[in-house]
Design a protein around this nucleic acid. Sequence first.
DNA 1: TGGAAGTCGTTAAATCCTTCACATAGGAAC
DNA 2: GTTCCTATGTGAAGGATTTAACGACTTCCA
Lengths: 215, 215
Amino acid sequence: MDLEPTKIPQATAKRLPLYYRFLNNLHSQGKMRVSSKELSDAVKVDSATIRRDFSYFGALGKKGYGYNVEYLLSFFRKTLDQDETTDVALIGVGNLGTAFLNYNFTKNNNTKIKIAFDASEERVGTEVGGVKVEHIDDLEEKMGDLTVAILTVPANAAQGIADRLVKAGVSGILNFTPARISVPHHVRVHHIDLAIELQALVYFLKHYPLEDEEF
Amino acid sequence: MDLEPTKIPQATAKRLPLYYRFLNNLHSQGKMRVSSKELSDAVKVDSATIRRDFSYFGALGKKGYGYNVEYLLSFFRKTLDQDETTDVALIGVGNLGTAFLNYNFTKNNNTKIKIAFDASEERVGTEVGGVKVEHIDDLEEKMGDLTVAILTVPANAAQGIADRLVKAGVSGILNFTPARISVPHHVRVHHIDLAIELQALVYFLKHYPLEDEEF
DNA sequence: TGGAAGTCGTTAAATCCTTCACATAGGAAC
DNA sequence: GTTCCTATGTGAAGGATTTAACGACTTCCA
Ligand SMILES: NC(=O)c1ccc[n+]([C@@H]2O[C@H](COP(=O)([O-])OP(=O)(O)OC[C@H]3O[C@@H](n4cnc5c(N)ncnc54)[C@H](O)[C@@H]3O)[C@@H](O)[C@H]2O)c1
Ligand SMILES: NC(=O)c1ccc[n+]([C@@H]2O[C@H](COP(=O)([O-])OP(=O)(O)OC[C@H]3O[C@@H](n4cnc5c(N)ncnc54)[C@H](O)[C@@H]3O)[C@@H](O)[C@H]2O)c1
């Protein structure tokens, strides 16, 4: 296969959506060209890293000139499949789940929450952020061919729901619960552990004082 | 200074709160000892990585035995300063901010949202999750000596608020807005960009198919 | 008591990622 | 056209992190 260069480092892949978003900003501001240095200031990524990242896709820029915003944008649009929208499901319409539903991920973004599930009778049947809340019992029946799910249920329900999601054909889970879930090898789970992020920030502040270098 | 071993890799530091949480779970389940292998299954981190992480703090375990849960726990409690609570401020009581306020970060956790700010007259004066919402105009006056802030305002307000936070003495910001904010060198910003996390997951699913290895 | 089984701590290798530094291509100026 | 200048693309170096591998020491059981 290998239509795509395949060898793009994961670290680079994680930065692509960020580049894409800022290129969009520049474009809507009417900017025609941009240098790795300018982009660096905007996204706070070293300019050499940006050039290296771009270079994995070939020579996208011109020496002595920089990058053409429109060209770069259309290139990334294809690369990131921004043409087609990816629909995702959300499980657990509580505090976090409600926030996500109310937020429109679709701005500058090719992902959209298409369906939501909850166990609480009070929630089921209501509509949040334009998405109808279904009963968790109907998960298998109503998932259709969605392959990505956002998990915002209580931690103790996480593994059970994950198992059902996998059986229903899901291959990617964005897990916001503190539970570390077990899934088959072909399923990808990304953990976003907000409590840990906060603790880690505090730890770094106390133990890794930033020097006022470069002054 | 170097009271602490100082040379702990950042990657290790980020895993410490995770270890701490799971050790707490084990402890409350009455488990007395644990091996790096067991812990590995629970937190989904390679057992060699766990042993290496722990070894930065000295010899915490016993060969042929494993680790004493209680000892490990009390060690990490000190290391992570779990005795003292760190108070943080939250700016922007919207969808996300409300979710965070309603969530009790304090379980298993030494951080607590102590004060919240918003610009909307409707919000100011109300109480969310037991925290009173102050007016953003009173930020400087009411921050006291808090040094950590969670930023959940609209993207276009992010830089302005960040500047004010820094002037008010904040040295750590957990930034949930898509804006990449600029701060002085002595201030640490951690970005949590939910839209990008979702896009990155989708990108990985499409371009990095997981092989069903080991079967 | 002795030997087998288990698990740590660590050395060394492998992998992955970032940054430096500069030759070189191409635009801009005139 | 010719020259100057700028910013790319990349080879090489440098860091950081993960993983493999194994010697050493402990427990546990016969
Ligand atoms: N809210 C936060 O700020 C925050 C921060 C860090 C972590 N988290 C984690 O995110 C997750 C969700 O947090 P929250 O604050 O939204 O919790 P919540 O209790 O407000 O929401 C959970 C929702 O899941 C539903 N639910 C429960 N069991 C279910 C099941 N079996 N199937 C389907 N739905 C079910 C509940 O009805 C509820 O609506 C939790 O695991 C929490 O630990 C939340
Ligand atoms: N909700 C989500 O799921 C989600 C997902 C991804 C990113 N985000 C980002 O997180 C941020 C917050 O999102 P949200 O959905 O909670 O937005 P929101 O609009 O619901 O909340 C923003 C809150 O900030 C307040 N505010 C506005 N300007 C302010 C100012 N100058 N000072 C203080 N408060 C001010 C508003 O009154 C409002 O209550 C946004 O930047 C958004 O892009 C949110």
